[in-house]
């Protein structure tokens, strides 16, 4: 993976486009964009994107690998699917954005402090442990994501909510200790391992 991190891309040659097509979920579609910009305009989070989707697609074609993969932008997607609904060329933009984010993360190029990325990684780590999301642990880890003092403050602020949920039996403090998971956790591990293996092979194959 290391050599891919440093891959040199010639401008406007299709090296990076090909890399995206091979390795990014729905990356095949990037070439179909006609730069109308309706995705960028339709996105409710639009103003927060440094590079809106259509621009990212152009950057991919222009071979701006570093800029794209280290960009904050695709992490802005909240999966509202507005862009997909509007795209005149049928591009599954939401999926491409997630695909790009995931790929950047795998390569270790994603911005380290990107909050969406941090949340996603915590979510994932939490999930794969037992095959179910442990909401309490996830919540607590998120509270303390930005340091201990920040965590205490956030926790205090959210305390009434937590008490209410406990009363309504929507939250059990016991979950903090172990918590329940899927029945066949070995099976889950096997699935995840296999998936990881397939992806690695794909990248290795592309890279060879």
């Amino acid at each position: 993976m290391s050599n891919m991190n440093q891959a040199m891309v010639e401008k406007y040659r299709n090296d990076f486009l090909k890399e995206v097509k091979a390795n990014v979920e729905e990356g095949d579609w990037v070439q179909m964009c006609m730069q109308c910009g309706v995705c960028s305009g339709s996105c409710p989070f639009g103003p927060y994107w440094d590079h809106p989707p259509q621009e990212l697609f152009m950057m991919i074609r222009a071979g701006k690998r570093e800029e794209v993969l280290s960009s904050n932008s695709m992490w802005m997607c909240t999966s509202c699917y507005n862009c997909i609904a509007r795209c005149p060329r049928e591009l599954p933009i939401t999926h491409i954005m997630h695909g790009l984010a995931h790929y950047a993360d795998r390569l270790g190029l994603a911005p380290k402090e990107q909050p969406t990325r941090k949340f996603a990684n915590r979510f994932w780590d939490n999930l794969v442990k037992k095959g179910r999301v442990n909401e309490l642990k996830l919540g607590v880890s998120l509270y303390f994501m930005n340091g201990f003092i920040e965590g205490i403050k956030t926790a205090m602020a959210a305390a009434p909510l937590g008490m209410g949920m406990m009363k309504a039996k929507r939250l059990s403090p016991m979950e903090y200790f172990g918590g329940h998971g899927v029945k066949d956790s070995k099976g889950l591990d096997a699935i995840l391992k296999k998936a990881r293996q397939i992806e690695d092979e794909k990248i290795a194959k592309y890279n060879s």
Binding site: G37, S40, S42, Q54
Partner: peptide
Amino acid sequence: SKVAKIEEDKASGNPVLHGVNT
């Protein structure tokens, strides 16, 4: 730009176009 959406400014009756100049 393919205009993303139009909203109406109620006071003036003006349509307001939203989108991105690509």
